[in-house]
């Protein structure tokens, strides 16, 4: 499925450029965007290295486990296939906490670590597990309480009330999460 989207993005772009005579521009763009991708990874390196180090202390000391036990009653309803002592739960909880607080860049290393732990419990290593999909749905439907970037931009454009969008955003993001998790639940149920 991701392959299909990738094919669609590249093929439609290149074929359209062929007809509009933009081929040379696209040629340069391909090289430039490769550099852009590497730069993007470079900007992520410090956050990933720092937080994976700090979180390893939290994991070894047992703090992460305490945190996940605290949220276990809630998480166990969503992630039925994960056991109570699963290390993934602590990272899932940390990831969600960061997203809710609007610390998006810090949330990424926790998310990657959660995927890594879920992969260890996964039977079929090249196929996504139920828990992974539930986690991704929760993650991508964007459970952010305060959209800081949007508010900052609205402010810079001189909006009379930059924060007026907070409550509508929370409602929309909640609807999105509920819809996603419901469909995820229905599919999981129907496959059993």
């Amino acid at each position: 499925m991701v392959s299909l989207i990738w094919l669609f993005l590249i093929a439609s772009g290149i074929i359209y450029s062929f007809f509009t005579g933009n081929m040379e521009f696209i040629n340069n763009e391909i090289l430039n965007s490769s550099k852009e991708a590497i730069n993007l990874v470079f900007t992520m390196i410090p956050v990933i290295l720092l937080w994976m180090g700090i979180m390893n202390i939290a994991e070894v000391s047992g703090l992460l486990n305490k945190f996940s036990n605290l949220l276990y009653p809630l998480l166990s309803k969503l992630f039925t296939s994960l056991k109570k002592d699963s290390k993934a739960l602590g990272y899932i909880a940390s990831n969600i906490a960061c997203n809710v607080l609007g610390l998006g860049s810090v949330a990424t290393p926790f998310g990657l670590k959660a995927m890594e732990e879920m992969q260890k419990e996964n039977i079929n290593k090249d196929e996504a597990s139920d828990a992974m999909i539930t986690f991704l749905v929760l993650n991508t439907s964007g459970v952010t309480l305060i959209p800081t970037t949007v508010i900052a931009l609205r402010n810079s454009y001189g909006s009379v009330s930059p924060t007026a969008i907070i409550i509508p955003s929370i409602i929309a993001t909640t609807v999105s999460s509920i819809c996603g998790l419901t469909l995820d639940y229905i599919i999981r149920r129907s496959k059993k």
């Binding site: 990738w6 590249i10 290149i14 450029s17 509009t20 696209i26 763009e29 965007s33 852009e36 991708a37």
Partner: peptide
């Protein structure tokens, strides 16, 4: 890398 290249081709072409 794969995603950024794909998305950029799509965006910059104007398709």
């Amino acid at each position: 890398l794969a995603m950024v290249v794909g998305v950029n081709i799509f965006l910059k072409s104007g398709v």
